[in-house]
Write a protein that binds this DNA or RNA. Sequence first.
RNA 1: GGAGGUGUGGCCGAGCGGUUUAAGGCAGCAGUCUUGAAAACUGCCGUAGGGGUGACUCUACCGUGAGUUCGAAUCUCACCGCCUCCGCCA
Length: 438
Amino acid sequence: MLEIQQLRTDLDAVTRQLAKRGYAFPIEAFNALEAERKTIQTQTQELQAQRNAASKKIGNAKSKGEDVSAIMAEVAHLGDALKQAETQLEQIQNSLQKILLEVPNLPHDSVPEGKNEEHNQQIRRWGEPRQFDFAIKDHVSIGEGLGLLDFETAAKLSGTRFSLMKGGLARLHRALAQFMLDTHTQEHGYMEAYVPYLVNRESLRGTGQLPKFEEDLFAVNAGGAENSTSNNSPAFHLIPTAEVPITNMVRDEIVPLQSLPLKYVAHTPCFRSEAGSYGRDTRGLIRQHQFDKVELVHIVHPDQSYEALEQLVGHAEKILQKLALPYRVMALCTGDMGFSAAKTYDIEVWLPAQNTYREISSCSNCEAFQARRMQARFRNENGKPALLHTLNGSGLAVGRTLVAVLENYQNADGSVSIPEVLRPYMNGLDQLGKTGGE
RNA sequence: GGAGGUGUGGCCGAGCGGUUUAAGGCAGCAGUCUUGAAAACUGCCGUAGGGGUGACUCUACCGUGAGUUCGAAUCUCACCGCCUCCGCCA
């Protein structure tokens, strides 16, 4: 959410910034509502002041035992006018709020301008893609060839965009998550968190998924309940990312200055409806309704958020380096960034079967955008509450990392070597072979 | 799920229809005193928003939302959180 004062005083600059990301701010509607708000708010407050003054007089007079019927008559007419003004003001405020909640964040000055992912900017590249001297397979063929990856049964259980892993592959998936958690907690200073996978609407509004992106989420009601709340909305949503529960830990909180920065890591499943992505990435593990992710969140002092962003990306990169998986870091352009982000780096891992780099992590500085929605604050150097900055990034998407390991570590005989750093998590196993590796 | 209790500023805590402008305390900030510190004393000290160039001024906020009233932290109803006990349960 943007600051309404900024829109009042600097609307031109704000709309120009938003246009860079392809967002057309409803200027006329906003200005009309603002003008109305000003009038009605002043009027409402005048009526309230009159009522308060009269009521105080009545109180005074009564305590002295005087007759109050004259003053009572004076305020008799106020009631209806006041109620009407208050209702009208509330409606206007709601309309303004609705507009505000759907406006994306302003891009940082350093973000390259562009329409779509073609205009993203490569920042750096790490590692060299391996040269294969045999015909390579994609991760689906590899996994199915090993008898450890089964989309047919997953479809029977749940439907399309679900997966079933077994044996050594399921264990490798678990090993990846453990390895990521251990690295971030032991080497990068994160506090591990275990969080709810079902969250309420306030949390989703806080991080920006609601109200605008409801169709991307899965909603959940208690068994037998059509709708668990009176206003026809579901009781919970499944988290689309651990960013939601972790970041919302500081919602409505005032964090003491000395406890900053907060750095959390959590491994959770993520659930996305993938509405609007029909036909995209239908094969394999790349785009699933349910996938695991290790998420990194920083809650920081506003002066430190861009420094924190660089660190955050570095922590995610470190995982790929330890796994010896080639990748590149991209600065997303204005048109390709997510709703809440002021600046985003994507990390893309090399997938030999697709002969390209694919997103495996997205690291964003949301500045005060989420903090303002959440009222997440700290007590600053002057003792005054001020908005925090929030950052989040994948460190990494576990399923996609598994894809990258399978494809980059495949052997000519259909087996898959296990990266050195994962072997301690695999009971020393060094490859997933024909036997299924267990 | 059942019964009972409870929700007031950063924290503790009084207030239960009208000088409440939310007492008092703790913590914090500034000052006096002191070689310095502590103690003592004095003053300041919630959040958000509106109007005004400004000194200033007005409004809202006592878990949330409705209601009663000229007037609600205080009364009524609903919901939510927390605590205690019971039931069920991995």
